[in-house]
Design a protein around this nucleic acid. Structure first.
Lengths: 234, 234
DNA sequence: CGTTTTTGTTAATGTAAGGTTAAAAGGTAA
DNA sequence: TTACCTTTTAACCTTACATTAACAAAAACG
């Protein structure tokens, strides 16, 4: 299976340092989005799905703590590492208050940063086993093998799903009977949330409905303005 | 409601440091169980239910990492903080591998420890809150699922509610049998309080009454000039 | 009382979101 | 390159939703 690169949001206003750090991280096989200030950082965060945020504390307009608070409101799960020139205790405390996962004082050893990144991402990964390890689903009379992208009805001939069909159905299955927010699919699968990706998703919902029609007890319901719900009626 | 003290398992072999730390934590309103080594620590862990473990890494017989592994096998959920004299990179990484929630190098600032404890426990708490509590209501013979926006009568077919219907009924349910002020709904749901939003709200009250008519014991009463009251008659 | 204000209810309207199909664009391997 | 598969974009239609208007009924108030 294709191993997906981990995505890091780096928010750092110093252009030199930011660029260097970005390059260093990219050399180490991370996909890095670099935002030059808190405002831009939040915009990018909203539009995408990151595995980790690295925030500079001292920034014009919007400091790292404020940004972290906004990020926490939207997604309480993503790990956050703060970078700061200060070694002030108050700052450390403030960082932990908004839910920092770690803390680094500038200048810092880049190897240490790398290690912390690995450790934190790894921890999240093991915490979320249920999320990453589930590739097989029973959906009414269907079996979905999300690794092989097969959808099989009643043990018969499997249909091959396209990558997007597969991912979307998998996300729905992970939220079986519950709301699968539009936004979630768009950021996770399409990696962008706009009018066109949204319409594209609707097209895929239609395709999935066509596949699933074979079992009348399985349906994808829409919750207007919120998302979709994969329900299995008994 | 009685607020329960959080329980901490402290495993630290240095008797002086351990006692001081225990006292300090107890002064800060935690219930602390102090074990003098890894073996004892695991025994105490098995016998009780803790909100947090603080483990010294360097201990005779059984070091902190080994203990952490055993703890993780039994209860993968409890947060763990490591204390260590070492600042070795390998140790930090090893700690995170067994699922540390945080890490402190001795000597450390006790205030920082306290803050980390608070942050970690609080994080766990918010993670654990099954948000179902704020989104599911029983209203007479109805069930309101406010997240999925449906209203079900006697376990039958659920009716879909529009966002405004849903929010309004939820607000009423939150104030069951009590006054739900007009102004509250208008500011919270309509985000504006004027003649037109007020009339719009009245329209929605009418819609809700239509839905709720199925159960004669449930009614929405008006309190002239004040607001509405969702009552369930016995 | 009559009058004003508030509320009850239904229907009409405009806009936004979603459903569906087909064509265009993009990608990839033979 | 062609051929094939996937994804996006476009077009058109349906449904869902919120607001507003219109008129009726209560309640408050002089």
């Amino acid at each position: 299976m294709e191993e997906l690169k981990k995505r890091i949001l780096l928010v750092e206003d110093d252009p030199n340092f930011g660029t260097v750090l970005k390059d260093y991280l990219m050399m180490n096989d991370y996909e890095v989005t670099h935002a030059k200030n808190g405002m831009e950082g939040f915009e990018k965060f909203k539009k995408d799905d990151f595995d980790l945020c690295i925030l500079d504390v001292m920034m014009p307009y919007k400091d790292g703590f404020t940004l972290a608070k906004e990020i926490r409101e939207k997604n309480s799960d993503v790990p956050i590492i703060f970078l700061t020139a200060k070694t002030m205790k108050e700052d450390v405390l403030k960082g932990y208050k908004v839910g920092a996962d770690d803390y680094l004082n500038k200048p810092f050893d880049s190897e240490v940063l790398l290690m912390k990144i690995k450790a934190i991402i790894q921890r999240k990964a093991t915490e979320t086993i249920s999320d990453s390890k589930q590739f097989e689903f029973k959906i009414g009379r269907f079996d979905l093998n999300s690794k092989l992208r097969f959808l099989r009805f009643d043990g018969g001939d499997p249909v091959k799903l396209s990558p997007k069909e597969n991912e979307l159905l998998r996300l729905l299955a992970l939220h079986e009977n519950d709301l699968m927010p539009r936004e979630l699919a768009l950021t996770k699968i399409w990696r962008d949330d706009n009018y066109f990706t949204s319409r594209s998703m609707d097209v895929y919902i239609a395709k999935l409905r066509k596949y699933l029609k074979l079992d009348p007890k399985v349906e994808i319901l829409n919750i207007h303005g919120e998302g979709f719900r994969l329900v299995i009626n008994d």
